[in-house]
Design a protein around this nucleic acid. Sequence first.
DNA 1: AGCCGATGCTAGCAGTGCTAGACAATCTAG
DNA 2: CTAGATTGTCTAGCACTGCTAGCATCGGCT
Lengths: 184, 184
Amino acid sequence: MPSQERRERALAERSALIVRAARELAEADGWDAVTTRRLAEAVEYSQPVLYSHFKNMQAIVTAVALDGMAELAVVLRSAREADGIRGLADAYLGYAEAHPAVYAAIFTRRTDLVFGAAESPEILKTTFGELHAAVAPYASGDAETLTEVFWSAMHGQATLNHDRRLRPAQRTDRIEQLVRLVTG
Amino acid sequence: MPSQERRERALAERSALIVRAARELAEADGWDAVTTRRLAEAVEYSQPVLYSHFKNMQAIVTAVALDGMAELAVVLRSAREADGIRGLADAYLGYAEAHPAVYAAIFTRRTDLVFGAAESPEILKTTFGELHAAVAPYASGDAETLTEVFWSAMHGQATLNHDRRLRPAQRTDRIEQLVRLVTG
DNA sequence: AGCCGATGCTAGCAGTGCTAGACAATCTAG
DNA sequence: CTAGATTGTCTAGCACTGCTAGCATCGGCT
């Protein structure tokens, strides 16, 4: 019965549509604007349809986060291969700035994502691995911990940039200073 | 007419009561649990009373944030005077961990606080001044920017710690590594 | 004493996430 | 080709949110 497959394909496609719509809505008007009603309207279905695809609203945010994480991993990888840690830092903060809602979904909104554990999605480890690869050459002792320190430092700049709590004009200076601190 | 003064004193006291209750509720059950109804019940008044003291819920969060900011400034000052930048970093992350809701009110929740501008509350500048004083001795170039980099790095650790996205066991190692990066 | 403004209440609005239950469309089987 | 079961989708509604209009009541002032 190939009809079953067709139905499943249609469902998967609509799931993707929902995630895409959520992401676009969030980037356009912020996550507060992503309500079940508005999201349902965007995909031209009624609200309950969302719940046949996702357990709840948080699960939709998580889906956006996972998509974004994969995107970020690719961006970081090519930046690192081209420009080492300096390129990676620039790419990381560039991504956070270009896709603030996605970045928030990944790192600042409450999700059910579990970091740094066995059951973490593979993609989380991949992304962390990119950071690790960029930092490792400059680590004298524990490279894992230095990676966490470096990641935290970039994350801090990303969020404080976004909330307008740092001077915008010094943005690149801050990246440069951070990279210099790590590379010595 | 001294009755006016008495009334004003009573009002100010109740404002403080509301802020205190909001903080306690937030620390106990998280900011999501701080609703107007619950908060009103905690201070034993009806919801509309809150609005005669504060413009809206956000203003209450801001009040908690300003209180916390003053507290944090004091903590940072004595830690810095005793132990320099190492003591300050430890105190900063200690405060974020001991008072997560207050820290969130100050730095991660949307407030109407404006950082780094002329109209910023004096206390924000005071706190930033503490960081600056701790960092300045180790700055070769622009100390302001290095302060922002250092602050961001600590803020990143604070938030990622809180969201359980860093390995708990390495907490002190991360602080130590960060301080070493700055002090060279 | 009587007015009158300040104060705090009840009730209600529009919006939220989420769900129950009715209905329609589709597939399966005789 | 039709009857029945299954699947899909919708309307309506619940309990909650922040916030406000409008009424009662209580206090101080003349």
